[in-house]
Design a protein around this nucleic acid. Sequence first.
DNA 1: GTCAGTGCAAACGGTTTGCATGTTT
DNA 2: AAACATGCAAACCGTTTGCACTGAC
Lengths: 149, 149
Amino acid sequence: MAEDDRRGDEVLDTLRRHAKRITTAKRAVVGVLVDSRDHLTAEEVTREVQRSWPDVSPSTVYRILEELEDLALVVHSHAGHAAAVYHLAGRSHGHVTCEACHVTFEVPSDVFDLMAHELEASFGFELDRHHVALAGVCAACRTRRRAVP
Amino acid sequence: MAEDDRRGDEVLDTLRRHAKRITTAKRAVVGVLVDSRDHLTAEEVTREVQRSWPDVSPSTVYRILEELEDLALVVHSHAGHAAAVYHLAGRSHGHVTCEACHVTFEVPSDVFDLMAHELEASFGFELDRHHVALAGVCAACRTRRRAVP
DNA sequence: GTCAGTGCAAACGGTTTGCATGTTT
DNA sequence: AAACATGCAAACCGTTTGCACTGAC
């Protein structure tokens, strides 16, 4: 989709502007992130990249993800003990992860507003809405659980 | 403190009631958890236990923590990519972890009430308040940050 | 031609596991 | 005596790193 191409080009331009070299591996990683509406683990990104470029190594993917994150183009978050998930930086949002199906969802940032305010007022704690995913059980799994108890 | 002893005995009694054997290592792990007001990593528990019983191994500590957790006597939570922290199960509460000093704090469960309600109403998502720690910056580190910018 | 970027393999930290031995019941 | 719990060492997973080489500029 044209809009996605534009998004990808923006990312590559930012790399260029920071005197980073544009390589096949970087194009591929950015392509995967742009195409994916989901939050992917580094391993999933690697697997996806390797469908077209089989000898891009996992360590390269980690290094590219790190570089993109340093430039605030990519963001990762953690859920429980599982692998981190990465995605393109966009509008600010929070994460919730289902403990049953292990899928991470975005939720709008303002869901956190009241809690953030309370944490700040009561404890002086400044919430980082993005970085850690809340745990719980998603709607689909709750239904499934009721059906097969 | 007598109250702590009682708490420790309760835990050991529950173990007995579930036909688990009471060993030196278990007494020691329970003792450390009871004494500590903090949230400890498995490694910290091990180190503390080894001060009195140097040849209790890390794997045993992990196994004991797991057993205690299966009986709902202990709870662990994750913060970002760091090691999990364990503590005795008690009143329900949430966790917030400072990204600067890596200390995990408890916050009262009701801080999450409004957000939990909104997640449920809007997304059908059932929040597990306990299992994952929110990230952010604690009051002390924010002050420090302002002082030394 | 230079250097940042890469592949590979090895190391890492936190955690789990298989197995032979020791301890609780 | 029988079952369970433990120590040790090795495996595990996700991630990071050292090194020699390659390919973008």
